[in-house]
């Protein structure tokens, strides 16, 4: 694992004792954050730790497990050259706080996650579909979405 900010996980665990779960990973420090603490954690990571650059929001559908969605955030510290990944689990009827107020770069990735998985980000300035047509029904990357193409015979 590339570590140019080696104590980041220790510092985060001291700041949020007992609530973070460190995930073993080969590329960058990774923690799982409870959904309720996500916004406070993100604010700390940006304003105190200095991870000011936002890379991406990813999602994975673990259907039929509950909660089914795993939402993954990638952030970057441009002065320490250190990446950090934090993720949280959410169900389909649970909204997540939007990161747009903290990192403007979260705008389009969150719309993408909404478009393809149907994850709702509360406080997003314009949570509409970004790839699919506006009148599309359903969220295609969900595991219970039909895999075959539509046939009009």
């Amino acid at each position: 694992m590339k570590l140019t900010d080696p104590e980041i996980l220790d510092r985060l665990q001291t700041r949020f004792p007992g609530s973070l779960e460190v995930v073993p990973s080969i590329d960058q420090p990774t923690v799982t954050v409870p959904r309720e603490m996500l916004l406070a954690f993100a604010e700390h990571v940006k304003r105190v730790e200095g991870y000011v650059m936002f890379n991406d929001v990813l999602a994975a559908d673990w259907f039929p497990a509950r909660p089914r969605f795993e939402v993954v955030y990638h952030v970057y510290h441009p002065e320490k050259y250190q990446r950090l990944r934090f993720k949280t689990f959410v169900d389909e009827d649970q909204p997540l706080p939007s990161m747009v107020d903290l990192w403007a770069g979260a705008n389009w990735p969150e719309r993408e996650a909404y478009d393809l998985f149907g994850i709702v980000f509360e406080g997003h300035p314009q949570l509409t579909r970004i790839y699919l047509p506006d009148d599309w029904e359903g969220h295609p990357l969900r595991k219970d979405y039909p895999t075959a193409g539509p046939r009009v015979d």
Binding site: P140, Y145, P146, T147, A148, G149, P150, R151, V152
Partner: peptide, 16 residues
């Protein structure tokens, strides 16, 4: 016919 792209995004044959 849609070819290998048998998924939601692709029209399964342009004759539709």
């Amino acid at each position: 016919s849609g070819g290998v792209f048998d998924n939601y995004a692709i029209i399964q044959g342009v004759d539709h």
